[in-house]
């Protein structure tokens, strides 16, 4: 068992603990800025977002009609594919990487608690990811303003907001993977597998199940929203359309049954994924030997 830095429950209220956490956050952010993954992800996301905006406006910009809703569909797909991968691999390498390099032991030898360290990493990486996303979305917004007259500013901002939430949530999942593995390469591998499951396997499985077992709408809907990516997708579509009717019978069922509570439900699913993963990560990290 561990000897150092078991967190006391009163820590979040203590100003010095907050300072330490923030210091770790800044360190994480600084490391992100100098690291290749951050630059690569930022550039990749920016290029893809701009390209998606251009492509979805191709041949329609001249009508001054298309606006954001079509671009949103393209961006939605991009976000669901890229953002969880970015966030989960970033989270997965953070703790496991330090452990592998031996710096984790060194950090924990200082008079800081493990929770402060983990929270600091979480905040710093969240800030880095959100900033990276904002750059991509900002450029995409520039394209929209230039080519499509920029209709739908509100829906665009809601998509940005939900995407940042998704990034933070999947980052906590990444951190959970990171604290449970010893090697950075293993952590990355597990993260990619989880990403594959969330993005493709679970949806494909549900589709197959639906065809085989003829799920009723409520069953299909409740099974689908367990997946944080589906919850994100539905929240984003709600932000665009104010209704899930584009998602067919199951969407109409959800809109009819839950009405105004639906966005809170979906945000709750996302928040639960984030909070539970982080809690589990904190528990494992504070209980486990540093090496």
């Amino acid at each position: 068992m561990t000897q150092v830095g078991l967190s006391s429950p009163s820590l979040p209220m203590c100003p010095s603990a907050m300072r330490t956490t923030l210091a770790f956050a800044r360190r994480e952010l600084r490391e992100a800025l100098t690291s290749r993954w951050f630059l690569l992800y930022t550039a990749a996301f920016a290029v893809l977002a701009v390209a998606t905006s251009f492509m979805s406006l191709a041949g329609t910009g001249s009508h001054g009609f298309a606006g954001f809703s079509r671009t949103a569909a393209g961006l939605l797909n991009l976000v669901m594919l890229v953002v969880p991968l970015m966030a989960m691999t970033a989270g997965a390498t953070s703790v496991a990487g330090e452990r592998e390099r031996g710096t984790l032991l060194y950090l924990l030898a200082q008079p800081v608690s493990r929770l402060e360290l983990l929270l600091g990493k979480f905040i710093g990486l969240s800030a880095a990811l959100c900033a990276s996303l904002c750059i991509g979305f900002g450029l995409s917004a520039g394209v929209l303003a230039w080519r499509a007259g920029g209709a739908g500013v509100g829906s665009f901002l809601s998509l940005v907001g939900f995407t940042c939430l998704l990034a933070v949530v999947t980052l906590s999942v990444g951190l959970l993977i990171s604290v449970s593995t010893r090697k950075a390469s293993v952590a990355t591998g597990v993260a990619v597998f989880v990403w594959l499951t969330l993005v493709f396997l679970s949806d494909l499985g549900l589709m197959a199940g639906s065809l085989l077992f003829k799920f009723r709408v409520q069953e299909l809907f409740s099974l689908a929203i367990i997946n944080p990516l589906q919850a994100f997708k539905m929240s984003a579509i709600l932000g665009l359309n104010a209704s899930l009717d584009v998602l067919g019978p199951a969407g109409v069922y959800a809109s009819r049954t839950f009405g105004a509570a639906l966005p809170w439900m979906l945000a709750g699913v996302l928040a639960a994924w984030g909070a539970l993963s982080f809690l589990a990560a904190a528990l494992i990290f504070t209980r486990r030997a540093p090496v």
């Binding site: 569909a73 939605l76 797909n77 669901m80 594919l81 993005v199 493709f200 949806d203 494909l204 549900l206 589709m207 639906s210 065809l211 003829k214 799920f215 709408v217 299909l220 809907f221 689908a224 990516l229 589906q230 997708k233 579509i237 584009v246 998602l247 067919g248 019978p249 199951a250 969407g251």
Partner: peptide, 13 residues
């Protein structure tokens, strides 16, 4: 075949 599957539109799947 299964209209409920429209739920998965707009997704990488």
């Amino acid at each position: 075949r299964e209209p409920n599957l429209r739920l998965f539109v707009h997704s990488p799947a």
